[in-house]
């Protein structure tokens, strides 16, 4: 680990004045950042600890939704009464991630910004375009078991590894961001993370100096909520594939089908065409197949991760069958 300066502002304004996004890095729970600093994947000269900035409440919003402060811990979010009652997909996604100890430290903002688990990204003696632009991608011809099959680029095939954001994407939550000089903006979770394209070093749309202040959940909707995470061991493992679903029926037909996928791409994957296809239809195996066809139309495997394509298909079918109580 490199020596660094630690600063602990006590107001957002103060924080903005310290965090220029170039030499300073924000630290919240530290469960991701510190690991990467030990490996010298991240070598900030200054750390700006935001633990004194409040932002640790879960509040009702005017339209019946919830505003989850950026520093609310994952444990607090998952245990919150209204989240358990109205947004169970979120509570389940969080509880499917990491371990109790990690969730006690991990925060909303930090979880959204957690970095990929690509083995080559975390090993500074290997090439990686995300860590060191232009050095190449070790994974693409290497071991790509954890890697993406949707929206990849020849520069980077990494995945966003988290669970919480996948549920937030299905719920169409919004990230509240504050930049310097009191500029506030809201970005849907669905647009928050980037695809690697030609800028694989860019994980999300945060600009230098911007701070996530909260995530806003829209008013709850009717329907069944499911988070299904497929993994090799039953806890303490990142998703091979995960599906977050909010699905409602009206009589025999599907009335709502908000779906998001983890483990497949550089971002929680949301494909609006799936809802268009599913809504208004009577659920059956053939329909689920068509949904999977659509989802995976452009999927591309990289050898070690080829299995994710059929696995995503099957997991989607399982989730849709469970949600619509269809036998397949």
């Amino acid at each position: 680990m490199r020596p660094f300066d630690l600063q602990r502002p006590d107001s957002l304004d103060h924080a903005h004045s310290l965090s220029d996004g170039e030499t300073a890095t924000l630290i919240a729970g530290g469960t991701n950042l510190l690991d990467l600093m030990k490996l010298q994947v991240e070598t900030p000269e200054r750390l700006v600890a935001i633990d004194r900035l409040g932002m640790n409440a879960i509040e009702d919003t005017e339209d019946g939704g919830l505003r989850i402060g950026a520093l609310v811990t994952n444990t607090a979010t998952a245990n919150h009464d209204r989240i358990r009652a109205d947004y169970p997909v979120l509570a389940r996604a969080i509880l499917a991630g990491a371990t109790q100890q990690l969730r006690n430290r991990a925060t909303t903002g930090g979880n959204l910004c957690q970095r990929t688990r690509c083995y080559y990204f975390t090993n500074i003696d290997q090439p990686c375009n995300k860590r060191e632009p232009g050095s190449g991608c070790g994974a693409i011809d290497g071991i790509a078991r954890l890697h993406g099959v949707l929206g990849t680029s020849p520069q980077c095939i990494a995945t966003y590894p988290g669970d919480m954001a996948v549920a937030m994407s299905a719920l169409d939550a919004v990230v509240e961001i504050e930049g310097a000089a009191d500029t506030r903006r809201q970005v849907p979770v669905r647009d928050f993370h980037c695809l690697p394209g030609d800028t694989p070093w860019r994980d999300n749309v945060l600009e230098p100096g911007e701070i996530i202040t909260a995530v806003i959940l829209p008013a709850p909707v009717e329907g069944k909520q499911i988070y299904r995470k497929v993994r090799e061991r039953s806890s303490y493992a990142f998703a091979l594939v995960s599906v977050a679903a909010v699905i409602a029926m009206e009589g025999d037909t599907i009335a709502r089908a908000d779906l998001a996928f983890g483990g497949l791409a550089h971002k929680p994957w949301h494909d609006p065409r799936l809802a268009e296809l599913l809504v208004g239809k009577v659920p059956d195996a053939a329909l689920f197949d068509r949904a999977a066809d659509l989802l995976l139309e452009d999927a591309q495997g990289y050898g070690e991760n080829d299995f994710k394509i059929p696995l995503a298909r099957r997991t989607l079918a399982a989730v849709l069958a469970e949600a619509t109580e269809t036998t397949i």
Binding site: Y119, N123, Q126, G138, G142, L146, R233, F238
Partner: peptide
């Protein structure tokens, strides 16, 4: 790794012993 033979999953998060 097929190109240089290094062990890629070299921590307890990615080498999966049972929990």
């Amino acid at each position: 790794d097929p190109n240089d033979g290094h062990l890629v999953n070299c921590d307890l998060a990615e080498y999966h012993v049972p929990v």
